[in-house]
Design a protein around this nucleic acid. Structure first.
Lengths: 343, 343
DNA sequence: TTGAAAGCGCTAACAA
DNA sequence: TTGTTAGCGCTTTCAA
């Protein structure tokens, strides 16, 4: 049976109040009884009943994370890493992490609503923000604490962490233009996603400062999976006027694009250059290793978590907005020869 | 402010008891009041306070999942998919999923203990079982409900789902032996993991029925990451007596091994054959596509979740043990030529 | 068919 | 320094 403060109270012949206070470190308990109570509690293997505590204190020490999944085959390494970042930080700060997956849409907002109304979470981490983001509108409207990974278009009056996608893509553009390439194709992500626009602007601006513009036929939209990178690249590379560079908006699509090129017997890094975005662990060990933009996802997860908890605890009142400058990671998929150039 | 049954009671001029009963569908409430109460509740946007319910009912409608992470760069697509499988099923059955990450060891058991003692979860899903699994011993000892993905060595007297790793590796062995190869290297996983032994036995038995035995120098141990597949394969392939086949114990390591081969200008599928295990989504779109053994991880996640909830609800009392027969998926990494051979 | 009252395990205002 | 008491929101006996 579970041990309660009542059991402890009986054992040490004190009231439950005293036990509660001793255990919570109040200093209006004599140090003798305090020590006794703490010792007894330990011996009896006492752990407070979270629900009772929460019911009483009216907060939950839980943060919610509803992952937007588009398909059941949901296997983005990016999210595992983000999850670990959030989860580990949450554990450190004594918070629980309640995870749910939901496809974007009606059901998604409903899931948010349920968790809020049921008093189950103190706040949310919202990931993969959309330009028009119903989740964010909803949370702002309800004045419910949240921290977002990314901005949305119209209303950015809240706390978020974002990698500077504009800047990241500029780096790519500068680098590629510097290599003298002009026939550049791009596999973008869903235009609804906010970062798609950011990255696209960065790319466009970066290229146009070298008088390069993107041909419409060379702009394709993928869904961030390896398969869609593969499919799109295949079509691009089968053209008679095929591009010499493929810029993908994430690593998974870039890896798919490399496979497509190789399938057509093109050598990546020579016949066609490929770049990604994210720097997931496998990009370093792909063949060839992938040139990409590094986002410290694990760290970002931790930051988001910390930020959210501060908001919940009202330790910060103004909106915190962090913009990460990502770094370009040059590897062989863009022709770098020396395999020892890294680290 | 949150709406409680008290608010509803006041509004309809009934006691909170009646409201509670109406809302819970008891039939000792006049259908008139029942209808009125339900309507009012809806209008007021009532959602029950989960913690109050749980405190009262003494269960939590929450299942726990503590992911064993070895490093912060935790990016296994396999786990994202498993998580989605568990999470979606849990949502369907109106259960919450509480997720935590913890490195194997002391801290890990402590995390289990805390969730149990704090009355926070009704049961656990245990993943990546070890031969000697302290988590399982602990849960059995405490008679706490759980379902495991995989068995452990000594005590398998509990409910689990497992893919038949012995069988899966036999398929690989048969197939490779049938191609006439003899110089076979293998990159295994941590011997502590239960499936390592299973897969190794399957491989050994499958090969020995063709009079092939594994050389000790050709057996290497990796940590299931792409990097370790890469590193190990590099060493294997640099030998003067290099193997003509590399069998990796998961896809991530196999993908790393392919990169290593390609870095040494070996053609995968011709100069060296590579196989994996899992069939993560990216294996279909790697270059070359990877021959592997398919594990329906998403489905398994759902099954585990369902199984656990049945155990919690005491709908099943005997231990359920499901052994999946995985299927061999042959692709070009073992020399298949026709790229249209799939699907 | 309804309501009063107890209690799940805990915290905290107030009194002693 | 300690204990009494009320109450968080809900379910569930028991009585009316």
């Amino acid at each position: 049976m579970k041990v309660t403060i009542k059991d402890i109270a009986k054992k040490v012949n004190r009231s439950i109040t005293t036990v509660s206070r001793a255990l919570n470190g109040y200093d209006d308990v004599s140090s003798k009884t305090k020590a006794l109570i703490i010792k007894t509690a330990q011996e009896m293997g006492y752990t407070p009943n979270t629900f009772a505590q929460r019911l009483q204190k009216q907060f939950t020490d839980t943060i919610g994370l509803i992952l937007p999944t588009f398909s059941p085959r949901f296997a983005d390494p990016y999210f595992s890493e983000l999850l670990a970042g959030i989860g580990n930080k949450a554990a450190t700060l004594d918070y629980d992490l309640l995870v749910s997956t939901r496809a974007p849409g009606e059901q998604e907002i409903e899931a948010y609503r349920k968790l809020i109304e049921g008093g189950r979470v103190d706040g949310f981490i919202v990931v993969r923000t959309r330009k028009q983001d119903a989740r964010i509108d909803y949370l702002i409207d309800r004045e419910f604490p949240f921290a977002a990974f990314g901005r949305s278009e119209k209303n950015s009056d809240y706390s978020y962490v974002e990698e500077d996608g504009y800047y990241g893509m500029q780096l790519i553009a500068e680098y590629i233009a510097g290599l003298g390439h002009k026939d550049i194709a791009v596999i973008i992500s869903d235009p609804m996603l906010n970062f798609t626009g950011e990255r696209m602007s960065g790319l466009r601006d970066g290229l146009s400062s070298h008088n390069i513009s993107l041909k419409n036929e060379f702009i394709r939209t993928g869904d961030l999976t390896q398969k869609s990178g593969y499919d799109n690249a295949l079509e691009l590379l089968k053209r008679s006027d095929r591009p010499t560079v493929i810029i993908a908006f994430n690593d998974l699509m870039a890896l798919g694009a490399m496979s497509a090129a190789q399938e057509l017997s093109l050598e990546v890094g020579r016949d066609v250059l490929v770049t990604g975005f994210d720097d997931i662990p496998m990009s370093e060990h792909s063949h060839p290793p992938l040139t990409t933009v590094r986002q410290p996802v694990y760290t970002i997860g931790g930051m988001l978590c910390e930020m959210l908890i501060k908001i919940i605890k009202k330790e910060i009142t103004t909106h915190q907005q962090e913009l990460f400058k990502p770094a370009l990671v040059i590897r062989q998929s863009t022709g770098e020869v020396d395999s020892l150039s890294e680290e």
